[in-house]
Amino acid sequence: MQQESRGGGGRSVDGGAATVFDHRQWQRSDEGGSMAELVVAHGRRKMYREVTLSLRSGLRDATAEFSFLRVRGLRKLLKLLHSVASDESLIPLFCHSQSIPELQVVPVLFQNTLKHPKDKPEVTLDHIFGAEPIKLISPATDGETSLAMRVLEGCCLINRESRDLALQYDGVKVLLGILSSLGALEQGACLDSLLSLIVDSSANQRQFEASGGLEGIVKRMKDVETEESTRLKCAEFLLLMLGQVYGEVDPPSATEQRNLSQLVGPNCASLMWAASQFGSTLVPEQRQVALVIQARRVLEALET
């Protein structure tokens, strides 16, 4: 083995074959790789900074005393969630941000907008003329409540830990409590939020069952005086819940089938269990169309 070095390069000769090693070329390659890593790291830091800035701005407004300011904050948060959902590189950054208490979205929603009626303070003359007047906060409008539920839905779909945070505030129970006080459009948002809470969360599912959620939604679906759009949305909710929660892994148990049969009748229950498996092989657009068709079939079965 003979080796000769010239000007930073080396030549090795082995059995008549010669290979030239240029150490400067290897150094440039290492420097190029390091530079690329630095660029990627800088880009991630920049994206994370933008995510946190958007969160802080939206959360600041979402905790305001006036409803119009909270609406502005919720719209900022909803816009951020749309951006995160459309860019997979932002999803881990958003999930990491939700491990930081001051950046968590779900607690702000339940502390400021999605409040159970009993949690709202009663204002009396003593509060107004007393030495320590109560801090007055404008009540949430239906529009604000709907926005908050859309933000909640987005958080839960993107970040699984948001469902656990909602459980700390009895999120399922709160949503069920305010469902009846909302208009038709807001009720649709409420049902979507409920579904995002109970999917893949056994604790929230137990709270849904303990709070009589299934019975309440079935009752609303069967009420012919309820708006048609709301009844249809309730049927869609039940089909999605049966397919994604109860029938996700194993076939429905005898108890689950019996409970549903008692609520809607055996024929309609059989239809719902079969229809809940709709469109498992369809693309999202076709799945939504199939869901609406099956929901209408459920309503028709109730009326026969």
Rank of each mutant, 00 (worst) to 15 (best):
E186T: 09
L179W: 02
E144S: 02
S89P: 09
P139H: 04
G177N: 04
L59D: 09
C95S: 05
L175H: 03
D164R: 14
Q98E: 03
I158E: 01
H116M: 14
G143H: 02
L77S: 08
S86A: 15
C156W: 00
Q98A: 04
E132G: 13
V174R: 10
L157K: 14
F110Y: 10
G130F: 03
I128E: 06
F66L: 15
V174S: 07
C155I: 02
Y169D: 07
R163L: 07
E144I: 01
L74I: 01
D126Q: 14
R60C: 09
L182Y: 10
Q104E: 10
A62Q: 05
Q104G: 12
L93W: 00
Q104W: 05
S89R: 09
L69C: 13
G154H: 01
P121E: 04
V71M: 08
L182T: 07
S83Q: 09
D142Y: 05
A131E: 11
L136G: 15
F110I: 08
A140Y: 02
N159I: 02
H127Q: 11
A166N: 11
H127A: 14
K118Y: 13
L74Q: 03
E153T: 04
T124F: 07
S146G: 11
E186V: 03
I158S: 07
L59M: 08
L179T: 04
L90W: 00
L78W: 08
H82C: 14
F129I: 08
K76Y: 03
L147D: 00
K76C: 05
A166E: 06
L175A: 08
L103N: 07
P101D: 11
V71Y: 01
P121M: 01
S86N: 10
F129C: 15
I100E: 01
L90D: 05
K118A: 11
E132D: 07
V174N: 10
L93Y: 02
E153N: 04
F94T: 00
L167T: 13
I134L: 12
E65R: 12
D61W: 00
P101M: 04
L80G: 09
K115V: 02
S180F: 05
S97A: 09
H82D: 15
V174C: 12
P107F: 11
P133V: 14
T145K: 00
P117L: 06
L179Q: 07
S86M: 07
L81K: 09
L103G: 15
P92S: 11
R150G: 09
P121S: 10
K79L: 14
P117V: 09
S86D: 10
V172N: 03
P101R: 12
D61G: 12
I137V: 15
L90V: 08
G171A: 09
I178D: 06
H116I: 15
A64Q: 11
G130Y: 04
R72M: 06
S162H: 05
L185V: 14
V172S: 04
K76M: 04
L167W: 02
N112M: 09
L185F: 08
Q98I: 03
P107C: 06
S180E: 13
S181A: 14
R160I: 11
D87C: 13
K79D: 14
H82R: 13
L78C: 15
R72I: 00
L125Y: 05
K120R: 12
Q98S: 06
C156Q: 03
D119V: 06
R75N: 11
A148G: 10
C155K: 04
L80N: 13
S67L: 00
R70E: 11
T124Y: 12
V172T: 06
G183M: 07
